[in-house]
Computed example of a mutant assay.
Amino acid sequence: MKIERLNQDKIRIFLTFDDLLERGIQKEDMWREIPKVHELFSEMMDQAYTELGFDANGPLAVEVFALPAQGMVVIVTRGKVGARPEERAMEEEENDEDVYELEVTMEQSDVVLYAFRDFEDVIAACKQLNTAGLSEDGRLYVYNNKYMLAFEPAGLELARYQALIALLAEYGEAASVTTAVLDEYGKVIIPSKAVTEICVHF
């Protein structure tokens, strides 16, 4: 579980599938109001307070993004409950004094996103993908001093999808951000056909 502060009232938590498995939670359970999910949320808020001093008292808006092959990203924002009535609210009591008033939004992301420490790793990964015939249309970003390759493998057959993930994992690591964050805070270097472009120029 990794927690980082986005601003004074917003944090991002990255849960790997192992984090969920250790707690006996399936990905689909995050959509349901069950005690295990409540316990996980309490644990996340405790850790956010310990690591970042993020006090989760009061109304909270919680967005959960499922990332294929990587895990889940949970965005917690203070003071936003009631902004969107169509979202379902759930309440959770950690103890008698603290009440979390939550508004939960679930989103499924089909984007495969991997981070690389330096450009040489990006080049090596792209050359391997190209050799394997996996030069799917991709985008290259820079964000937080790392290079990010993003792919939208919609309609890609399972074997090719798994091969894409396996090759990316050899050179990079699964990123815990969404493309919405990259579009807003990152910089697009190659907007499309990133693997092909890199192989042609490097």
Rank of each mutant, 00 (worst) to 15 (best):
I13E: 02
V74I: 15
L67M: 07
L168N: 15
K2G: 11
D96L: 10
V200K: 12
T50C: 03
I75E: 09
A66L: 07
Q47C: 05
T77D: 06
E87S: 07
T131S: 09
P68L: 15
E92F: 08
D29W: 15
V81D: 04
Q108D: 12
H38V: 09
E120Q: 12
G155I: 12
E157C: 06
L134Q: 02
E107A: 15
P191C: 04
L60W: 14
V73Q: 02
E86I: 10
R23C: 08
R117V: 09
L134C: 03
A115T: 05
R78D: 06
N57I: 08
A166W: 04
E152L: 12
E173Y: 14
C199W: 02
T105V: 13
L60M: 14
C199E: 04
N144V: 09
A89G: 06
Q128N: 11
A174P: 04
V37R: 03
G133Y: 03
E39M: 11
E51I: 08
A163Q: 13
A66G: 05
V200A: 11
R78W: 04
E120H: 07
F41D: 02
A154C: 06
L168G: 02
E51N: 00
A180L: 13
I165K: 03
K187D: 00
T179S: 06
T131R: 13
D9I: 13
V73E: 09
V37I: 13
V74F: 13
Q26T: 11
P85T: 15
P68Q: 15
A48R: 04
I11M: 04
A154Y: 13
M44P: 00
I198H: 00
T105W: 10
D18F: 11
D183S: 10
G58R: 09
A69T: 15
H201E: 07
H201N: 07
L168T: 11
M44L: 11
V104F: 02
E28L: 12
N95F: 07
V195E: 01
I13C: 03
C126M: 05
E136M: 13
F151P: 02
N57C: 07
Q108S: 07
I3Q: 01
V188R: 00
V74Y: 07
Y114S: 05
A124T: 10
L168E: 04
T131V: 13
P191D: 07
L129G: 03
D137T: 14
K27P: 05
L129Q: 02
